[in-house]
């Protein structure tokens, strides 16, 4: 018993480099060795699919790519899976971004998917580009969309594009789907909810703050983090360009699964070590920031 306790006490002193190496291993290996995992779609994800399915045919959907390279890991699958579903359903969409890199990153995703589904730029999708001064631009879009956007990312006047026929303000679009890795989501709730069908996708850390808006009906669908993307892929039977039923969301679920298990394991052994320390009577060194 004593030796077990002493072993447990030693577990409190694991070097942070060892923990970093374990983390790297847990996250990297499943990316190379895919695990056969299935996701169960949650109500928030199902609601998004229903909202899209119930849109009138031909109605423009606006996708705001308010994310940059830092949150690409989560936001790219969240953008890809919904764009792919819209293309499969022959629903036209427009990309716009209030984050500097977002319009380009969203365009890269759309180009790949357009090649897969033989969709044409200007007819099936369009990119309005990056727009600075987000709050004022969004407000202006609510009253005069073509006048605010003026040109697409290639410099073509948007009023000339067939996709924009009948779209005078943002209130004329079928749905606004925000993908964000920043705090911009609240701005859409403030300025758009009530007038526009709004759906959101965000990084996992921002998820808990979004649920009140889902419950109140201010947003009509929510995808949270990589898990949200994986659920939507599962629900809409996403297939990559080779026909494999695996999107980036599901692919990365293996890493996330092992990552979560590692965190839980470390919390347990950290606490066991503290318990063992008390049992053997060793005075634990004060550790700043300990919670609980």
């Amino acid at each position: 018993m004593d030796s077990l306790l002493r072993f447990l006490v030693r577990l409190r002193q694991i070097d942070r480099r060892v923990i970093a190496a374990l983390t790297l291993l847990c996250l990297a290996v499943p990316l190379k060795v895919p695990l056969p995992l299935k996701m169960v779609p949650l109500p928030a994800t199902k609601k998004l699919k229903t909202t899209i399915d119930e849109l009138p045919p031909g109605k423009l959907v606006v996708i705001t790519c308010d994310w940059e390279a830092g949150t690409k890991g989560e936001c790219e699958p969240l953008t890809t899976t919904v764009m792919d579903y819209l293309m499969r359903q022959n629903r036209p969409f427009a990309i716009v971004s209030f984050a500097q890199q977002g319009a380009k990153l969203g365009q890269q995703v759309a180009f790949k998917l357009a090649a897969k589904h033989q969709k044409e730029y200007g007819r099936d999708w369009i990119n309005w580009g990056y727009k600075p001064n987000y709050d004022k631009t969004l407000l202006a879009m609510m009253t005069d969309l073509p006048g605010t956007i003026k040109e697409d990312i290639n410099g073509t006047p948007v009023a000339q594009l067939t996709l924009m026929q009948g779209v005078r303000t943002l209130k004329d679009v079928g749905m606004l789907y925000n993908v964000a890795g920043s705090g911009l989501l609240d701005m859409y709730i403030q300025f758009c909810s009530g007038d526009i069908t709004l759906a959101q996708a965000c990084t996992a850390v921002m998820g808990p703050e979004r649920y009140p808006y889902l419950q109140s009906g201010q947003i009509k669908g929510l995808l949270v983090g990589l898990g949200g993307a994986a659920q939507f892929e599962q629900l809409t039977e996403f297939k990559d360009e080779f026909g494999n039923p695996r999107g980036k969301g599901l692919q990365r679920m293996g890493s996330q699964s092992l990552g979560h298990l590692l965190v839980m394991f470390l919390i347990v052994i950290g606490n066991l070590a503290v318990w063992a320390e008390k049992r053997v009577g060793a005075a634990p060194p004060p550790v700043a920031g300990e919670e609980g």
Binding site: G183, V205, M206, P208, E209, A288, G289, E291
Partner: peptide, 21 residues
């Protein structure tokens, strides 16, 4: 360092709770 964190944003509260005094 001894650390105090204060933010009205609930997203970051768990991280500050875990790392600050």
């Amino acid at each position: 360092a001894v650390q105090i964190a204060a933010t009205p944003d609930s997203n970051q509260i768990p991280f500050f709770l875990a790392t600050c005094d």
